[in-house]
Amino acid sequence: MTGGDYGSRGNKDASITNPREGATLTPSPGTGKASRKHEAYLIGDGMTGGYGRGGPDILHDCTIAVNEGEIAVIVGPNGAGKSTAMKAVFGMLNLREGSVRIGGEDITQLSPQDRVAKGMAFVPQTSNIFTSLTVEENLEMGAFLRRDDIRGTMEQIYGLFPILKDKRRQAAGELSGGQRQQVAVGRALMTQPKVLMLDEPTAGVSPIVMDELFDRIIEVARTGISILMVEQNARQALEIADKGYVLVQGANAYTDTGEALLADPEVRRSFLGG
């Protein structure tokens, strides 16, 4: 940030300012106009909006929804607004139209933190772990809002990702890429969320690790947690998806079950490489 009234003027003096990124999340101000076009357990309903107050719209009447215990996957070409759609559901986008509801309750006006309290958990694509904290401390921080005994949940997560138990005293930043993703998912699960939102969880991991991670995600969904996921690897993701959203230029292009989308010749040709 260099401009604005309180910009840095390009100063990068490490002896007086911490180069670490500050808070970037800006809670959405809400739309003020509730709309109700579709129904689901968690739904971003007819969302239109973009970043910042005067920024151009990135989403155009886009709807993303997921029901209890389901896996919903958002796929689409680069720049289609996949991650943006997910951020909008989590309250990090200026929506001008549409609403977000969970369990029927309108949460369009809530800040991201308040949505965590409502049972949503979000795993960002990058910097999604506390690198300087140990694995166990990462999990504890995930459960920060909980006042009850968290040991049971932690055991469940160690059961899901056994490698984390062995490494629980290690700094999370020292782990491999796949293990870090496990920590990230584990941290998000510690709040005992009803919906787990994953932004490209398999970006930059090897195919073997990716399969492993998808297996775990199915396991999580079986415990009744809804999964909303943005994926670059569309084919593999649709294979495990109950519901798939194909976005093009910020709008819904195709919406169907994962299986049906995989079978749709149009979708295959345009988005799955034949």
Partner: peptide, 11 residues
């Protein structure tokens, strides 16, 4: 360590 993630964790 990570302000955004701390926020997402409810801190």
């Amino acid at each position: 360590d990570n302000e955004d993630l701390a926020l997402l964790s409810g801190i």
